[in-house]
Design a protein around this nucleic acid. Sequence first.
DNA 1: GGATTTGTTGACCAAAATAGTAAGGTATAG
DNA 2: CTATACCTTACTATTTTGGTCAACAAATCC
Lengths: 164, 164
Amino acid sequence: MRLTTKGRYAVTAMTDLALHQHDNGGRPVSLSDIAERQSIPAAYLGRLFASLRSHGLVESWRGPGGGYRLARSAGDISIADMIEAVDERTDNTRCRGQVNCQDNHKCLTHVLWSDLSQRIQDVLSDICLSDVVSDAQVREVAERQDAMAKNRGGAATVQWRRPC
Amino acid sequence: MRLTTKGRYAVTAMTDLALHQHDNGGRPVSLSDIAERQSIPAAYLGRLFASLRSHGLVESWRGPGGGYRLARSAGDISIADMIEAVDERTDNTRCRGQVNCQDNHKCLTHVLWSDLSQRIQDVLSDICLSDVVSDAQVREVAERQDAMAKNRGGAATVQWRRPC
DNA sequence: GGATTTGTTGACCAAAATAGTAAGGTATAG
DNA sequence: CTATACCTTACTATTTTGGTCAACAAATCC
Ligand code: FES
Ligand code: FES
């Protein structure tokens, strides 16, 4: 599993979502709010959320007042879940699990990469969104970001609807 | 720390070197032998070995009968050492340690990537070359490779010289 | 000494992966 | 009907990676 900007955006956006999903009485959090707070290109982030949704990590609502909410509790979503959703590929072997990277045979180090992939996956599975959200340093940054965004619109009426 | 073909080549070549450095009475193992056994482009591998050498992982000899040997014992060279030598960059933060990736401020998840980088580094530091070499599956592949290369030249006279 | 072998270096190139954009479509509130 | 906000596809630009080439330097062999 490789860490790239795509995966970092996904985790950052999900963290933002987790932090703000109880604002305004729990109405869905819109893409544009997240993108603005986290300085992520909105169009790009939109595609990442499509993946997160199709992997069952978030629910979405369309139309005015629409947006996203976590589909599961933050304690039940690991870093690995999020990165996998947008990055697919949990495997660090050259052969992508085909065991054929040297002229259709197993290369000298296949077993090593396979083993390491598993260990790295374990590390990323061991940390979940609630761990991130409750970290003191993370909260501190979030507060600064919220203060920064104070100029934008106030609370709106709360609505209940079914997700898409 | 990201796993890429460059790092995989480095580890594969080092493993091959560790496995063959006692062949022919301990004469240096040539680049072309390693490249051929492991199906790695020789010119490319040459540059990787230059990095491995400058990081003190191998010693080299030029001229006829020249080649490489491990500069330290296989138990004293970790996977992290080898990957770092060719890849530099042990850091998975977006800011590369600058703590400035959101408009010159710390982004929401900096502390997370920083922490994860360390954990992954620990995993890669925990396995060393001797672990790889002594793995049963690795030895099995090595034997097949050696049988494959049986057509090439036999043992030559042993020489002692100082490394480059 | 000269040819040959082997590693060393730097510049260069091609292909792949990644990050980002743009535009049209669909559902929903009001 | 219209504005909002998510959804999807296609495309483009940039960066990174993998790989080549040629000239070079050291050591050996004859
Ligand atoms: S990595 Fe799987 S065969 Fe080489
Ligand atoms: S990753 Fe370091 S500031 Fe964002």
